[in-house]
Write a protein that binds this DNA or RNA. Structure first.
Lengths: 254, 254
DNA sequence: CGCAATGTTGATAACAATCAAGCTCGGTGG
DNA sequence: CCACCGAGCTTGATTGTTATCAACATTGCG
């Protein structure tokens, strides 16, 4: 196993799912999922989790580079990332692509489609990944019966708004340096939340993808990584990043 | 009445509210509101509208420049703009302000607070305005009983996501020129939706506020207005804008 | 192994920011 | 009623950050 793989593989969380499942007849996928506590149904209890889990008809495997859903696809499902990572991309009328988000395990995707009934972006796997498909109509119906679930859905939609507005602030009024620092800190805390190290992780995306997300060119991103390294803020080797001075990164990010 | 006022006052829609209300005992505020068809309860019917309207305990008057809610305020209400206009502002740790949205009649504000329980931005009136305060807890409860209402809330949250992601794309990958063109077109269609002219309106915000929203300085915004006028795209006099070539603006906006 | 994809670094250019000066308009007080 | 004042806006000169263009290095996949 390479050093890189040792830093971060899914085994940390995965191993939990290998514990013997409770001998329940109707055990739903969610009741044995290693993402309990992070994923959508995290505020549900016992029997509610099963009712929710029974909605989740299929786990989709998505190969690196392929799409989980496409722009224009009718909204049938919202998706929860089980493993791997995705990017969501908006394609303009001229064909240029902007990445609006990176999505790790436990993140929900496709919420932007609820208003118009069709997906307004595409979700592409950054590595071989899996996502749970949750039929939206059934999810809404169940949410009428489970107040906790409705509340959680409101919260997740609202989180997406909060996240997007954070990005708006960064794009609108921060320098390239501040944006990259904030991006790295955000990744760091998300990995930490998933049980990984906060100061050492592997980027799942290219410099160009980071640039697209941050409104910068890939050259600028590359130069900034070099500069941050020179300044002793981090060590970067290809996609492997070690944050050496998180406090100073925070000050830079503002 | 000045020429400016004639172009756009609320009388266009207001007059509807002067029709005699149905002689219903429990007529709620919403059943006589001139924003029916635009506002949150727009998919509800008859009796449902009244149940919804009874939640709306108070219409808040907000003087130009004052806040409807502040950063850190506990989420008690979400707000629907009745008249006037608001901006929502995020204040960074360094004290600099970024405008994340402008809100006209029928728009909902405060949705970003659902996830964290506290408002993450402040809403400031751009002119003397009114907003309906809707208690969020009661709204959620009612949504459990009225599937149409739940659905509409999901849709409005999702619209906010769509709107924010549109702004992300503009900030991340469009030139100053494209951003301003897109901004004007967006205002245009929103005014049209409210029953006003699409090609002639009064800006409710300063150049500086437009700049903050678009990630530009006020000077750049001012120069762009001048250039657009020179190029025959529009006529701008102070806050009064007439769009003369919407088609070309669309091509610029991309 | 070879090639395409990805990443680094340098030189130059462009777009928008900053700094600066003066204008317009509406409100206020003499 | 008029003059003054200040907020908001316009325009010009200059600077600076980041984009663009270009060359080359590295990597990993087929």
């Amino acid at each position: 196993m390479s050093a890189t793989a040792a830093i971060q593989s899914n085994t940390a969380l995965r191993s939990r799912s290998k514990l013997p499942a409770k001998p329940q007849r109707l055990a739903s996928p969610c009741s044995t999922c290693f993402l309990q506590g992070v994923c959508l149904p995290c505020t549900l209890e016992g029997n509610e989790i099963d009712r929710f889990g029974n909605l989740v008809t299929g786990k989709r495997r998505v190969a690196r580079g392929s799409a989980l859903f496409q722009v224009g696809d009718e909204l049938q499902y919202v998706y929860a990332v089980c493993s791997g990572a995705f990017k969501t991309v908006i394609v303009s009328s001229h064909g240029d692509e902007t990445i609006t988000g990176f999505h790790l395990a436990g993140d929900l995707m496709g919420l932007e489609a609820i208003s118009g009934g069709r997906h307004g972006c595409q979700a592409i796997a950054l590595e071989d990944s899996e996502a749970c498909a949750i039929p939206f109509a059934a999810l809404s119906s169940l949410a009428l019966a489970l107040p906790q679930l409705q509340q959680q859905m409101f919260r997740m939609l609202s989180s997406e708004i909060t996240r997007d507005q954070g990005l708006i602030v960064r794009l609108g009024s921060m320098t390239a340096e501040q944006r990259l620092a904030a991006f790295l800190l955000s990744l760091s805390s998300r990995y930490q939340r998933l049980g990984f190290a906060a100061d050492r992780f592997v980027l799942r995306m290219t410099r160009e993808e980071i640039g697209s997300y941050l409104g910068l060119t890939l050259e600028t991103v590359s130069r900034l990584f070099s500069r941050f390294q020179q300044e002793g803020l981090l060590v970067v080797r290809h996609r492997e990043v070690t944050l050496d001075d998180i406090e100073r990164l925070r000050r830079i990010a503002g």
